[in-house]
Structures are given as structure tokens and as C-alpha cells.
């Protein structure tokens, strides 16, 4: 596949007085797993619906390989909506074949692909059952198969992990990883931040309709203010340094917060000058802490 890039470029959307999206921008490259996080109502679902053409944006553009996405390119996207939806009284196999055909496959290809995904997702025994007779977990698997059955060039999944048991979470993670390594850009939203941190190549944090931070998990964690954990008998020296703040003190251990631009090595020298140092390490925030931080700062500033 040539350079596969999905670009979301400056999309805005309002519902009457309510601004749902304000200049939302990000891009996802071939072979990349992009995690989309943000609190409820931040605009994740709206962004995905606009990318799929289910909603129209007020302004901005969605591009695939540099071209504006139209109905034909949209057919090449695999989509799992937040509100799960399948025909309740249609059999699993018929349903998947139908969706594959609607996405442009021939009847034969559709059958082969449907059977293939049914087998891969462990639904072989239920293939002729009506969807409404399946357990919720199995319905989720059919939903995933519905997003994958036409072998899409791009995957857009809204909360694919919600409501899954741990085994299904593993299956889902594995499938997404595989899809990404086969060169398909994968975007998914999730509230399970530990999962996003573990699985994704890049993460975007959304707040109040805009992308407030995006990058690899490492980049996000090392950016901004950094923290140091220092253990030494005395900690009074720290208060005298510029751009350093003691935010936690526990016996001989303390946590220091460094403003950006402050060299941690000069902090170490200052500490050694004051006395012995038993521990000196960088403390990096988890994605959850970053997220909380970003969302609360945004909330304060708006």
C-alpha cells in the first residue's frame, strides 16, 4: 500500500449553541495504532462520525492519502460505532456477508472473508444463529468482524474495548496490533488508559472539542514539567533553587517538580553539595496522570 495517511484537518462542528469540535486536527499513518482519549463529551465520537461521513462537519476536511474522503474511499474504512448496531434478527454469517458486499466485495469474496473472520474470532458454532440470540460478548465479536470483514484500508473504532471480558480484550488487542503491522492505520478511542498506554504507538488527548496533546506515550510523558525523587538527609537546599518546587516530603525522601528548562544535573550537584544523596531518579507521569493534568488545566482555562 502506498503512503497510507488519514488526516483530520481542522474540523469544527456545532450543535446550535454547543461547540462540539473546534479545529480538531491529527493524523494517523500506515502501520500506526493511534489512541484517542478524552473525557465524556470531549468530541471523540463526533470526530469519528465525521470521519465516516455519518455526520457533516461545519468546516475542515478529512483526507486519505492526500485526497478528500468521499463515499468510495469511505467504503474502505472499517468502522465500529460507539452505539453498537447489527440487525438483531439476521444470522451472523448472512449479516457479515451483507456488510462485506455493501462495502464493495463480490459475493464470493464476501463469503470467504466472512467465514474467515468468523473462524478467527471463535464464532464458528454460532455462525447460523440470529445475532439477538448471542451473548453480549459474542455480539461484540460479531461487531468487530463487521468492521473487519471487508478487509479495510483504515480502521476507526469507537470504544472497541468497552464491555469486553479480559480474554476478549486480548483477542481485540491482538487483532488491532496485527492490522496495524499489516500497514493499516488504526484509530480507536478508549477510557482504559492503561490499555491505550500499553497498546498505542501514539496517543491524542482531546478536551472540549480540540486536540490538546498528541505524540508517542514517551514524548507525552517526558514533555512539560518533570519530577525528581531525591533521598538525602536534608532537603532544605531544594527550596533555594530557581524553578524547583517541593511538592511532597516524606521523611528523608522528597518529590521535586522542575519547571521546563531546569537542568536536573544542576539539581543533583546542589543536592550533593548539601550532603549525601542515597537516591536520585526521574519520576515520569503515567498516561492517567497526564490525562488528568491536561483535562483539569483545560477545564480551568476555559
Amino acid at each position: 500500500m502506498p503512503e497510507g495517511v488519514l488526516e483530520i484537518d481542522a474540523i469544527s462542528k456545532r450543535y446550535g449553541e454547543v461547540v462540539a469540535l473546534r479545529d480538531m486536527s491529527f493524523d494517523v499513518h500506515a502501520g500506526e495504532l493511534f489512541g484517542f482519549v478524552g473525557s465524556n463529551g470531549a468530541g471523540k465520537t463526533t470526530t469519528m462520525r465525521i470521519a465516516l461521513g455519518v455526520l457533516a462537519a461545519d468546516s475542515g476536511e478529512v483526507r486519505w492519502n492526500g485526497r478528500t474522503v468521499d463515499l468510495d474511499t469511505r467504503r474502505r474504512i472499517g468502522y465500529m460505532p460507539e452505539e453498537r448496531g447489527l440487525y438483531p434478527r439476521m444470522r451472523v454469517l448472512d449479516q457479515l456477508v451483507y456488510l462485506a458486499e455493501l462495502h464493495g466485495m463480490s459475493t464470493n469474496e464476501a463469503h470467504t472473508s466472512a467465514e474467515n473472520w468468523i473462524a478467527r474470532l471463535g464464532l464458528r458454532d454460532r455462525r447460523t444463529d440470529e445475532v439477538q440470540r448471542l451473548s453480549l460478548g459474542n455480539q461484540q465479536r460479531v461487531q468487530l468482524a463487521a468492521a473487519l470483514v471487508h478487509e479495510p484500508d483504515v480502521l476507526v473504532l469507537d470504544e472497541p474495548f468497552s464491555g469486553l471480558d479480559p480474554v476478549a480484550v486480548d483477542v481485540m488487542s491482538q487483532v488491532l496490533r496485527e492490522k496495524a503491522s499489516s500497514g493499516v492505520p488504526v484509530v480507536f478511542s478508549s477510557h482504559q488508559l492503561d490499555l491505550v498506554e500499553r497498546l498505542c504507538d501514539r496517543v491524542g488527548i482531546v478536551s472540549a472539542g480540540s486536540m490538546v496533546a498528541s505524540g508517542t506515550v514517551d514524548e507525552l510523558r517526558s514533555g512539560g514539567e518533570s519530577r525528581l525523587v531525591v533521598e538525602s538527609p536534608t532537603t532544605d537546599w531544594a527550596a533555594t533553587l530557581d524553578g524547583v518546587r517541593v511538592i511532597e516530603k516524606n521523611g528523608t525522601r522528597c518529590v521535586l517538580e522542575l519547571a521546563s528548562g531546569v537542568d536536573d544535573q544542576s539539581v543533583l550537584h546542589a543536592a550533593l553539595a548539601a550532603g549525601p544523596v542515597y537516591e536520585f531518579s526521574r519520576q515520569r507521569p503515567t498516561l492517567t496522570e497526564l490525562f488528568r493534568n491536561v483535562v483539569t488545566t483545560e477545564a480551568r482555562s476555559t
Partner: peptide
């Protein structure tokens, strides 16, 4: 209404008009 209440319409409208 079946398509609307089961929400399958969202998947369908991502591929047909």
C-alpha cells in the same frame, strides 16, 4: 425503525447513501 433502534443504520450509512 428496526434499523434505527438497533443502530445498525450508522454502519450502513457509512457505506451507502
Amino acid at each position: 425503525v428496526e434499523e434505527k433502534s438497533s443502530r445498525v443504520v450508522e454502519i450502513l450509512l457509512a457505506t451507502v447513501r
